[in-house]
């Protein structure tokens, strides 16, 4: 088990190095950073001096090594536009994005799994058919449209929920949370639904198809023949067997939720990393883009590692130290 985790960690480092290379290349190919920083009236001599001072005249490999070294210490330089350290700006906005992502992921799981189980067990019930039809909406409508629709209904027409922002936040030192105030919670509802709806329908359909698959297996028939209660058969035996693909997809989707919170954050003007990233794209603020790229890659790598470890918790056959057959 330990060897397995160490091997996975080494692979993770490799992935991060490759991503760092790509992020670094952005600096080289997306325009001249000096042009972004200085005004028109700067003389060529001053530009050259700045270039040397920033280390842009050093050999590329030296620059790359410096970039990786800095990135490993969570130092991504200074934003061209805001003239602030990038890592500080990202840390400021990270709680907003992570809270939004976690809440929508939990929402998607808590609603999606039971709906999937229900539609899998009661295939013919009208409620199942309703769920499936509605889930088509969740899959086919783009999130920004859903967000705007929700704003239209709940913020504009009914005026019961705010249409933008995070509401009142409580600062806990390095983490500012909106989960502790009523206005913060209210502000979270619409963006969380918008962001989680696609994942919810995905999880529901996945659980449903896995349930249908598992309920056909011999061990479920045998569990029934042993006289186990419907509850034990459906939840103890069937649901647990659907969990491997659900964990995989949920893990990957969690990464996507964080990465693609961009759109939802823009629609709801949510002060998170996604909104920051979108602004940085508009301003060709490469340090922020590079940092964001590295951060998202890091999240995916960590989530994948957790998913792999969870497999072994759920399925004994994946456990690498398991005994051999008699």
């Amino acid at each position: 088990m330990t060897a397995f985790i160490i091997r996975r960690l080494l692979q993770a480092v490799l992935v991060m190095l490759v991503v760092a290379l790509i992020a670094f290349l952005m600096f080289r190919f997306v325009g001249d950073p000096i042009n972004q920083m200085v005004g028109i009236e700067t003389t060529p001599e001053q530009r050259e001096a700045l270039r040397v001072r920033l280390g842009l005249r050093d050999p590329i490999l030296v620059q790359l090594a410096r970039f990786i070294w800095n990135a490993a210490q969570f130092n991504f330089g200074t934003s061209y536009q805001f003239k602030q350290p990038v890592s500080e700006m990202i840390l400021q906005r990270m709680p907003a994005t992570l809270e939004l992502s976690m809440v929508s992921a939990i929402f998607a799981l808590i609603v999606g799994i039971p709906m999937g189980v229900y539609t899998g067990i009661r295939r013919e019930a009208w409620l199942s058919k309703l769920f499936l039809t509605v889930s088509l909406v969740g899959i086919s409508l783009p999130p920004f449209l859903i967000g705007i629709l929700l704003i239209f209904i709940f913020a504009v027409n009914l005026q019961i929920l705010p249409s933008f922002g995070r509401g009142q936040v409580v600062d806990l030192g390095f983490w500012s949370t909106g989960l502790l105030t009523v206005s913060g919670l209210k502000a979270l509802i619409l963006p969380a639904i918008t962001l989680g709806l696609f994942q919810l329908t995905l999880i529901m359909r996945l659980v449903r198809s896995e349930m249908l698959e598992v309920l056909r297996t011999d061990y479920i028939k045998f569990a029934r023949a042993r006289g186990l209660t419907e509850r034990a058969v459906n939840f103890g035996h069937a649901l647990k067997n659907t969990m491997i693909p659900v964990i995989t997809v949920t893990g990957l989707q969690l990464g996507s939720i964080i990465a693609f919170a961009i759109i939802t954050e823009t629609v709801f003007q949510w002060p998170g990393m996604g909104l920051l990233f979108l602004q940085s794209v508009q301003n060709v603020d490469i340090p922020i883009m590079a940092a964001y790229l590295m951060l998202i890659a890091f999240l995916f790598v960590v989530i994948n590692l957790i998913v792999d470890i969870l497999y072994t918790v759920v399925d004994p056959r994946v456990r690498l130290d398991g005994g051999a057959a008699v």
Partner: peptide, 28 residues
């Protein structure tokens, strides 16, 4: 169904054809 369930396993046991697939792989 509920009455029948109490008979299954309790008064009528069943052995299936394929032992490789009759047991749930996730439980000891």
């Amino acid at each position: 169904q509920e009455e029948m369930r109490k008979i299954r396993g309790k008064r009528i046991g069943m052995v299936f054809q394929d032992p490789l697939t009759s047991l749930n792989p996730l439980y000891t």
